[in-house]
Design a protein around this nucleic acid. Structure first.
Lengths: 355, 355
DNA sequence: TTGAAAGCGCTAACAT
DNA sequence: ATGTTAGCGCTTTCAA
């Protein structure tokens, strides 16, 4: 622990440079209209004194914070066993950094944390929020609307459109992968391989990503035997459990599409344990293309790739663009000034050995 | 994106409750000496108006921020493929939340980010910093000292004690696992199993955790054949590479201690590929007890457990305690008021099937 | 016990 | 082009 020295103020810099505070402020913030020699003098004074603006004072007047909250509402431990979250964060961090914005991380562990998050968001600490992992019954969207903070969601939020009060002027903005399309590609690939008894290990159906992937599966396997579908929870253990169920119910299945790579890795283990060869007896496809998982299963996993880091980056970009727009108040609505709208990113099938 | 409503101020609450701003401030901050009926009136006004204090204004006068920066300086992608980082964050988040402090995440990707981090830390945005993953030549400690921000390090920092200017009043505080002791336990266990040709896959030796584990290995294998040691990088791919090297150099090895679970998983794959049975032919031990890795290798991994979440929690606790202490200025140095000192957490050997 | 008033460090009108 | 000045919303002496 090091001592905190008291920092020099604008005033001090002004005195040193022999100008007014306003001039120093202008130089520091890069405003036009300060003559070169003065700029030089101020710069030197800043340098010599090691001046750094006090952000609290600045925020107080500008009402900007150059900070964005990232809310990860995931009660399960899952998030933490899953690089997904870290990759998104990285994408977000890169984008925010490029815009000189800070990342304030709000992790919630349970219901009691929600009030705290709501208070924080309402407290005007941040310019906007990026929100993840919403479940169908999540109280967070309500809190956020109450806090009145510009927000972009990660993954399509699960509420019914009718649930929200009509407010066409401020539509919900989210970034998502094409979960349904990706699932369809995966299942079509299995069918193309000649598989006829294709099973699905779903994710937790209170999340839209899981629902959408299941829908994609059904799009292709229109009359799928319901016994060929088992609900997992995006974990390897859940994948194992689901795989066992499926094998018990339908010993003749010849393919499995798992809702994510982690679940697929669990499925792979059960298949091996039960003596099924992959892909000869049972072809397996995952979702995510989480490299440390997909590349290192045995056999390596064929899977649906989504660019997770890019999703994070895009969320941040959309939010920042919205903030800029708002900053320009009622500027002319040119193309660049259009309000941000949701984005759905494409997925790609990555072929490895498992299917 | 939702509209930002302008928030009520202290002033508004005071007007509504028919008291002065000072009184509202006292109630809001829980100061003593406000009579019950007034407290009640103020509370109600706060409630009705949905008042939330403006943190910028508050920080401006108190010079506190109720925020802590977490700096993760890891240029490699490794951190993001590794739940380690997420677990620490969770521990930190829990502790900070309990103290009403916010977590500001600073991720650095390269040298150019360091200046930004230094500026941020110096800018007085946060009360303190928690810093991770230092490499031996890391410029971060210097920046941090320059910024004068109270800091707790995650993992013993790598600089030589002599490198730092003598400043016994403010010793470096860090939280670490007993890497060396844990490594010793692991290698002793292998020796106890009757293994005589024990190899080590080290981590990147510019990190103290890797160095300490190597030292622990050497403590037991005093005259280890240098060819039994290969440097990895804490990744599965690095583990594979190192394992191949080791097998090529010493085909007769009968045990491997890998510096972490990820490297061990890579080693396991190579051993299987080369037809060695684990643990019959070669016993394998990892480090971390990263559950999603250690429990799901084939065979499940015997490993040295460190409580990562607890490390995070402890770092935050130490920092906050130091901040409190500083807040009390030169208070009497009772036991509870002693300056925080570094903590080294014990490790435990977890036996599974691989050794 | 409560209130009045003085800033905290900065930006942004408004003057010059 | 530069300086003067009035706050931003809050805490904290100091008086009453």
């Amino acid at each position: 622990m090091t001592e905190t020295a008291s920092r020099p103020t604008l005033e001090a810099v002004a005195a040193r440079a022999g100008v007014s505070r306003a001039t120093v402020s202008r130089v520091v913030n890069g405003s036009e209209g300060v003559r070169e020699p003065l700029v030089e003098r101020v710069r030197r004074a800043v340098e010599e004194l090691g001046y750094v603006p006090n952000q609290a004072a600045r925020s107080l007047v500008t009402r900007r914070h150059d900070a964005v909250a990232v809310v990860i509402a995931e009660p399960e431990t899952r998030v933490f066993a899953d690089p997904f979250f870290a990759l998104q964060l990285r994408g977000i961090s890169k984008e925010l950094t490029a815009h000189d914005s800070q990342l304030v991380l709000l992790l919630t562990e349970g219901r009691e944390d929600y009030a705290r998050v709501g208070r924080y968001l309402a407290g005007g600490h941040v310019d906007g929020a990026l929100v993840f992992s919403l479940h169908l019954d999540d109280p967070l969207p309500g809190l956020i609307r109450g806090a009145g903070v510009p927000t972009v969601f990660g993954g399509r939020p699960g509420w019914q459109d009718g649930t929200r009060s009509a407010e066409p002027a401020t539509p919900t903005v989210y970034v998502d992968s094409d979960n349904r399309g990706g699932a369809r590609d995966a299942v079509r690939h299995l069918v193309g391989l000649g598989r006829v008894r294709v099973a699905h290990i779903a994710g937790p159906l209170d999340q839209t990503s899981a629902v959408d992937r299941l829908d994609g599966f059904r799009d292709v396997m229109v009359d799928a035997d319901p016994r060929l579908i088992a609900e997992g929870d995006f974990t390897p253990a859940g994948g194992e459990r689901a795989m066992r169920e499926l094998l018990d119910r339908c010993p003749d299945l010849d393919a499995v599409f798992a809702a994510n790579d982690l679940a697929a890795s669990g499925a792979l283990r059960v298949l091996r344990e039960r003596g099924r060869r992959v892909p000869e007896d049972v072809a397996v496809i995952g979702f995510d293309d989480m490299l440390p998982v997909a590349e290192q299963t045995d056999p390596p996993l064929t899977t649906v790739r989504q660019d997770i880091e890019e999703m994070g980056r895009l969320m941040a970009r959309l939010l920042l663009r919205g903030l800029e727009r708002r900053g320009r108040e009622d500027a002319v609505e040119d193309i660049a000034g259009a309000p941000p709208s949701s984005v759905v990113l494409p997925t790609t099938l990555v072929r490895r050995a498992s299917a």
